[in-house]
Amino acid sequence: MADLALPDLSTPRSQVLLAIADDALISGHRASHWTGVAPSLEEDLAFSTIAQAGINHADLWYQLVLDGTVDDVSAGVDALGLGREPEAYRHAIVCERPPRDFAYTLARHWVLDRFEAIRLASLAASTDPEVAALSVKLLHEHRYHLEHAQLWFDRLVRGGDEAADRLRDGFTQVLPEALGLFEPVEDEDQAVADGLLPVGHARLRERWLESAAPLLEQAGLADLVPAVDAAVPDEAAFGRRGCHTDDFVVDVWPEMTRLYREHPGARW
């Protein structure tokens, strides 16, 4: 896309918005795995909507990254969503993990959507009016995701030993890695000072813990609640700075971007 002049992606604004957009795109991409193979037809339909929302929301955030710098907005969105090298993606590593089993998928869904709702709620106060407006819109749509995630959380907890054990395994895998969601993007302090990101990722972690911990405790998962000062495990760290695992670099990224990359400038 040589003729497409993308904006400077290294600014704090771009980095913050790319983190949000990439979280949505990559977790949506992974959610689409369940299409046609979910444990029930009803769940199949539900997860497809969650996948579509991820892709759709990523599109909307990429449009804000572009900030009117390109004439062809769709081409600009695709250059961001599909045209970057793996190390330019800013999603947290927990988003790129494969769906594993349905219990892991549900545990991650629960964690990610509670996190996203909290981040969006804080972004509603952004000094960037477009960011604030989009956050309010998406927060509204997130309600379904939260209700859907909580629905299965409750039923797996009460669903007998095997379901509860599997959910516990899912949370055991997801919770430590979820801490990578709260790592700051490059120059995040600047974005916070500007008011673009009213609450930095580190403080979002406190809010997320406050909201998630009581529910995890009630579900008998108190021992899995991350400590306030727990470090991000090495294997899930620095996603926000572009470090990714083979789950992204070898699995998601080549498949997701190959067709786009093989036909530079083509229209589809």
Partner: peptide
Amino acid sequence: ARAPTLKRKRSLA
């Protein structure tokens, strides 16, 4: 997973 644009990705989904 392989759709060539984000628009096609979501509408195919």
